[in-house]
Design a protein around this nucleic acid. Sequence first.
DNA 1: GAGCATATTCAGAAGAACCTCAGATGTTTG
DNA 2: CAAACATCTGAGGTTCTTCTGAATATGCTC
Lengths: 258, 258
Amino acid sequence: MQAEDMMTAMEPAAAEPVRQPDGGIRRPDGSPVRVLVVDDEPSLAELLASVLRYEGWEIRTAANGSTAVRTAREFQPDAILLDVMLPDFDGLEVLRRVRAILPHVCVLFLTARDSVQDRVSGITAGGDDYVTKPFSLEEVIARLRGLLRRAGMARASSGAELAVADLAMDEDAREVRRDGELIELTATEFELLRFMMRNPRRVLSKAQILDRVWNYDFGGQAHVVELYISYLRKKIDSGREPLIRTVRGVGYVLKPPA
Amino acid sequence: MQAEDMMTAMEPAAAEPVRQPDGGIRRPDGSPVRVLVVDDEPSLAELLASVLRYEGWEIRTAANGSTAVRTAREFQPDAILLDVMLPDFDGLEVLRRVRAILPHVCVLFLTARDSVQDRVSGITAGGDDYVTKPFSLEEVIARLRGLLRRAGMARASSGAELAVADLAMDEDAREVRRDGELIELTATEFELLRFMMRNPRRVLSKAQILDRVWNYDFGGQAHVVELYISYLRKKIDSGREPLIRTVRGVGYVLKPPA
DNA sequence: GAGCATATTCAGAAGAACCTCAGATGTTTG
DNA sequence: CAAACATCTGAGGTTCTTCTGAATATGCTC
């Protein structure tokens, strides 16, 4: 799938599809995936909605449990982003009711850090997943893609593999290799690299990177991005043809050597 | 130079379209793109409006948040230029309200330099973008075009590629090639060349170039343009058929060799 | 061709952007 | 609970850009 992306990107004159954001995640009939976002904080719901919309999916939002159930019935989503803490009844209750209507819907829970242990254990058994607030948008998107992929929404060619030149990433195994050699990355380094590998040959600004890779409540300086780029370079570029390039005054690009 | 601007501006829909300014950025139905400009400083809003009108787009302006929301509902813009600092409520609040009405509208935020400090997280997340004041008009236009292009407003032929003779520019990757050979440019050199490549075969005065490529508050001499033209020539024309020509007493042109 | 206006190039100063290190803080793990 | 690790902040040093001013070159007019 990455190969496909790169080809369309490299063929200039070709009637270039504006962007192929969904990365091959579609409904079996080819229509865009539908996602319902349920969170009582409007700004967060809106943030998620706009990001997912940009991924090429169809989005509805709901601010409480009963609206969520009603919207689910009418909208027939393929996946639900579900805050476990809702004003009326909690996420697990919503899940029960929604499952009565849509038995196969994928659910990604959004939970507060401390409420992880008690409530949500066991949800991953059903194939569902969760992320803890505050999360990074990359993480939400990646997990959502994972759920949808496993639920059979992936086109044949699109697996969990990313590649740029001799750099390869297996998202499921969380393994990164350069020229076959395994490279150990920390969580943040991995997410940063994933974001870059998902957008090869595109210059990404530090602001863009911060917005996608760091938690949405991160209040620090864009300077961290430089730091982590430097970590990444040490691990994947040192002593080799560099794949990560600085574009001064703009940002960074990941691309094969010229 | 200034006179030329005024002339073409004064006969708007008149006789022959000398120039196809929108560069293929149109609505799917072929009608011109609509842009709403929101800034409380009238002179800046007017400057933006007139430049964007000259690009061939339909423009409305608003000076505060509530007017912006109302105008958005009625005008149904494809994109919004949105100052984050508004007298009534801030840009993100405006965005939230507008998105409730127009889920797919593109937003380009205009932010003050110092507010990069308290930068609003998520500002680029949904595919939206921002520029910091004081900006150059070229930058605003380029980013706006980028947003619209990615949002699917580009006609088939118009990608992020510009070409004049054997000189090619990929805006997304920020790559410039002459006859296939990659050429490294600084930020200002890149913007200057982009402006010239967008207006091939047209003589551009130094004043015009200064107005478009340099920040609107630039106080220096027109002499910088000469300097940067000389930098560009060294990088793209040296030892080859020159593409950049001086028109003495008038300005510069970029055009294929006769 | 002289003189003038205009354009090009050079050199250097000032500043911006970037990279890296070292250490503080917080988090996970044994 | 301590050790190991991950993440972030701040500061120093480095490199790269940008702009100014002056020196040189080019072209135009008479």
